[in-house]
Write a protein that binds this DNA or RNA. Structure first.
Lengths: 221, 221
DNA sequence: CGTAGTTTTGAGAGGCGTCAAGGAGCGTGG
DNA sequence: CCACGCTCCTTGACGCCTCTCAAAACTACG
């Protein structure tokens, strides 16, 4: 996972993260309230994280795919604050936190890597606030699709065709809108020939159009 | 700032964070795009952080007061991703990142503390997503007031009376609503005798009422 | 092939945004 | 000391975006 590590470092790290764990579709990797003692790197599969309010309302806070890290929010109180649920059969690397902490003292590269991963998550969260706080439904969904396509592409998949692993309701929860609005907005994108939709198969026809929806240019004047 | 440190540790850390910096009201501590080389601990005063979209829309991502940390989002790309602006004359401790990294290798307590601070911010962000994604204007503003009162109280101020350091527009940006809606909602809270409002002076009359608005109980059945 | 879950689509309602006008507080300068 | 202008705040009227409620179509799975 980390780059720029020496052979020795890699071996050390391997000893820490060699433990694998399978999580079947629908199962949770961890739940809010559970004791935190490890973070997890997704090796394969697809996860969602969500938090639940006292009144039962759920908010999906993220979708994680291969290479992304889960559970960092648990450090502060030694207990997880969200549920992580596999949306398809998945495998993760278990990274016991105490070991990570200990080893990163000897390997500055790893230490810095951990900071970068957490920092990246903070930046992502800022973007989420921007989305949820000041974008309209269309813009949010377009940004969501563009982001998903980009992440899939970075993993060697097609940037234009994808199979969503989550329901409309989960997308809606993530984007702060109702499932009906997600569905309607998808339909509107189809009408505008931006995408093609067949159930959870999405084909992006006009990526530039989506992008311009997701991040509108500065108004001329 | 950190707790549970030995005298030696504290001295070491002091050497790193002894640099102070003043920031006058309205000035920025750093701006998005600037090179990142230090994080900052607020000693006194009050900050807002905000990000700006390509089309100029701004989103306030947080308000920081004494003891809180600014700039952690800059680690990942060695450049700040948001602006930090003082809402009143302020003073911060400058914590050069390279030094922090180096010293935290020798002091596990500090190392863990850094992780906790970043993790706490991740948890806060999750809460923000919940607010922005699935709460209504009333609930958001109530949660905002309750949170502010709690943080002020933790710093030795009254939990029931406060002076807002930010405008209605900044509150609105933070909470994903327009300034008019913030104003109207304040007025509604006054009508409901939850608070008293005189410009930026807020007096909380019925904290329990606010709390129940901010985090509605599970519906009976 | 039936059943449950998911998705689409419609109709109507409502919360919040937009546009607009006026008022209050405050620093500055005559 | 008061007038002026600026920024910020409040309130009203109206409209739209999104939610709510509802029904039907489609898919997956047992």
């Amino acid at each position: 996972m980390p780059v720029g590590l020496s052979q020795t470092e890699i071996e050390q790290i391997d000893r820490v993260v060699s433990n694998r764990k399978r999580v079947n579709k629908g199962q949770s990797l961890f739940n809010a309230g559970q004791r935190f003692d490890a973070m997890y790197a997704v090796r394969s599969g697809f996860f969602k994280t969500l938090i639940t309010a006292p009144d039962g309302r759920e908010q999906v806070t993220g979708f994680q795919m291969a290479g992304e890290i889960l559970g960092m929010d648990g450090i502060v109180n030694s207990q997880h604050t969200c549920d992580a649920i596999a949306l398809e059969d998945a495998e993760v690397c278990v990274m016991p936190y105490d070991n990570m902490e200990a080893i990163s003292r000897d390997f500055p590269t790893l230490q810095h890597h951990i900071h970068r991963v957490m920092s990246r998550e903070l930046v992502r969260d800022q973007g989420m606030m921007m989305m949820l706080g000041s974008m309209r439904a269309e813009e949010r969904l377009a940004a969501f699709l563009v982001n998903l396509a980009q992440r899939l592409n970075a993993r060697g998949f097609s940037a234009s065709e994808m199979v969503l692993r989550m329901t409309r309701e989960e997308i809606g929860s993530y984007l702060g809108m109702k499932l009906e609005t997600v569905s309607r907005t998808f339909s509107k994108f189809v009408d505008d020939t931006l995408i093609e939709v067949k159930q959870r198969h999405i084909k992006i026809i006009n990526m530039d159009g989506l992008r311009s929806l997701a991040a509108p240019e500065a108004r001329s004047l």
